[in-house]
């Protein structure tokens, strides 16, 4: 039985700090703190749950979920992120796909996947030395319909079972969810941020009430948190791996200049 040693979540974008220097610094320092917590847990594997911004999963092929199974991953390079390779963890990825297949989830697998900013940006801060092997899980919130919050939460439970039942004893697994918080991108209300939505999401998850959020529909999330707010389903997957676990907010900043609410949480270690 492997062990979940760290579960964290964070927004996954940075834009120019010009004019918002203090808030940008708070965000960067928050993600750095999350990174310190992850590294202190000494994980053997880091599962990274994110959406893809249609650089890999576009309209040409639209799987709801996709697992990166490769031995290494080179970032796509959007946002001028360095294209330095990170190691993968094929054995873990395959075990997750197999457990999922026997649990009602037929996941797509990707050998050729180039992580965009959704994965590469937070990792550049959380694991700057590119030392921890990663397993990317892409949640396709950009397809219609997107995977529902309840399905995402259920997949998180399958991930927990994979770790607890299918992996070597003493393997240490950290889980990082990225994306959100509220943002309306190129739809009505473009550029708005809902601090009320953002705090509701973070407070629910850090108080062990993620299942209540999982009962929301995708449409309700879009209404209250925008189309980009759908990325909180990534957080629900992470929360489902440690049901009932409490945690803390590491940082939060509403930044309309970046068209988004920025936040990060850490769930308590076991």
């Amino acid at each position: 039985m492997a062990k979940i040693v760290s579960v964290v979540a964070t927004s996954h974008i940075l834009m120019s700090p010009a004019g918002v220097e203090d808030r940008a610094r708070h965000v960067v320092n928050g993600i750095k703190e999350i990174g310190r917590r992850v590294r202190a847990a000494n994980p053997d594997i880091l599962m990274v749950i994110s959406s893809d911004h249609m650089f890999n999963l576009n309209l040409a092929l639209q799987p709801p979920f996709c697992v990166g199974v490769a031995d290494s991953f080179i970032p796509f390079g959007d946002m001028a992120i360095a294209q330095e390779p990170r190691p993968g963890a094929r054995g873990f990825a395959q075990a997750f796909v197999e457990r999922s297949a026997s649990s009602g989830f037929d996941l797509a697998k990707a050998e050729e996947f180039r992580p965009d900013h959704g994965i590469a940006l937070p990792l550049s801060i959380i694991d700057p030395d590119r030392a921890i092997p990663i397993v990317p899980l892409l949640v396709n919130i950009n397809m219609d319909p997107p995977p529902s919050p309840s399905r995402c939460y259920a997949l998180g439970d399958v991930l927990r079972v994979t770790i607890e039942n299918d992996r070597p004893r003493d393997e240490r697994v950290a889980i990082l969810a990225t994306g959100g918080l509220s943002h309306w991108l190129n739809i009505p209300r473009h550029g708005e941020v809902s601090e009320q939505f953002d705090r509701r999401i973070m407070n629910a998850i850090i108080s062990g009430h993620a299942p209540e959020l999982a009962r929301m529909s995708s449409a309700e999330i879009v209404e209250q948190g925008g189309n980009g707010g759908l990325e909180i389903v990534n957080w629900l997957i992470a929360a489902a791996t440690v049901p009932g676990r409490s945690g803390e907010i590491i940082y939060y900043e509403p930044i309309p200049e970046w068209f988004t609410g920025m936040g990060g949480i850490v769930l308590a270690a076991a």
Partner: peptide
């Protein structure tokens, strides 16, 4: 593209 990038986050920010 310049605004939505990490180019501004130089060593001063502790990002590489």
């Amino acid at each position: 593209a310049e605004m939505i990038s990490v180019k501004s986050y130089t060593a001063e920010w502790g990002l590489s």
